[in-house]
Deep mutational scan, measured.
Amino acid sequence: LSQDQINEYKECFSLYDKQQRGKIKATDLMVAMRCLGASPTPGEVQRHLQTHGIDGNGELDFSTFLTIMHMQIKQE
Rank of each mutant, 00 (worst) to 15 (best):
Q19M: 12
V31A: 11
D17N: 02
E8N: 13
H48Y: 15
M30Y: 13
E8L: 04
D28E: 10
K18L: 05
G37W: 02
V31C: 09
T41S: 02
A38S: 14
I6H: 06
G56T: 04
I6A: 04
D17V: 03
Q5I: 12
Q20P: 01
E76A: 12
C12P: 01
M71R: 03
C35H: 10
E11W: 05
L36S: 12
K25N: 06
L1Y: 14
I24M: 14
E11N: 15
G56L: 08
L36I: 05
S63H: 04
V45D: 10
T51S: 02
V45R: 04
C35A: 14
Y16D: 01
V31S: 09
L66C: 14
D61S: 11
E59V: 04
S14V: 05
D28A: 06
I24C: 03
R21W: 02
C12S: 12
R34N: 15
M69T: 11
M33T: 02
D17H: 01
L15P: 01
C35W: 12
S63E: 14
D28W: 03
G58M: 04
L36G: 10
R21V: 10
E44C: 15
Q3H: 06
T41G: 15
G43F: 05
G56S: 11
K10F: 10
Q20T: 07
D61W: 02
F62T: 03
G58Q: 05
L1S: 12
M30P: 14
L15A: 10
Q5F: 09
P42T: 01
C35Q: 12
E11K: 14
I68V: 12
Q19H: 15
I68Y: 01
Q3D: 10
N57E: 09
Y16W: 10
G43A: 08
K10G: 07
G22V: 01
T41V: 07
D4Y: 07
L66Y: 01
Q20K: 09
E76G: 14
L29W: 00
L49M: 08
Q3E: 13
Q3F: 11
M69V: 08
D28G: 02
V31E: 14
Q3K: 15
I24T: 00
R34I: 11
M30K: 14
R21F: 02
K23W: 11
V45S: 08
G43T: 08
A26T: 11
Q19L: 07
K74P: 09
C12G: 13
V31W: 05
Q19V: 05
N57S: 06
K23M: 11
K74N: 14
L36Y: 04
R21A: 07
I68H: 01
Q20E: 10
Y9G: 04
G58I: 02
L1R: 06
S63K: 13
D4A: 03
I24E: 00
M30H: 14
F13R: 00
A32G: 03
D28P: 00
V45G: 02
G37P: 02
L29H: 01
F62H: 02
N7P: 06
R34H: 08
S39M: 15
L49R: 03
H52S: 03
R34M: 07
A38P: 05
S39Y: 02
K10E: 12
G58T: 12
G37E: 06
S39P: 13
D55G: 15
N7A: 12
K10A: 12
Q20N: 14
Y9P: 03
G37M: 04
G22T: 02
Y16G: 02
Y9F: 13
A32C: 14
M30C: 11
E11P: 02
S2K: 11
E8I: 07
G56R: 08
E59Y: 03
N57H: 15
H70N: 03
E11R: 14
L60G: 00
L66I: 11
N7T: 14
S2D: 15
G22M: 04
Q19I: 03
Q20M: 06
S14G: 05
I68A: 06
A26F: 03
D28K: 08
M33P: 01
D55N: 13
S39G: 12
F13K: 00
K18E: 08
E44L: 01
G58H: 04
T51A: 06
K74G: 12
I73F: 04
D17M: 02
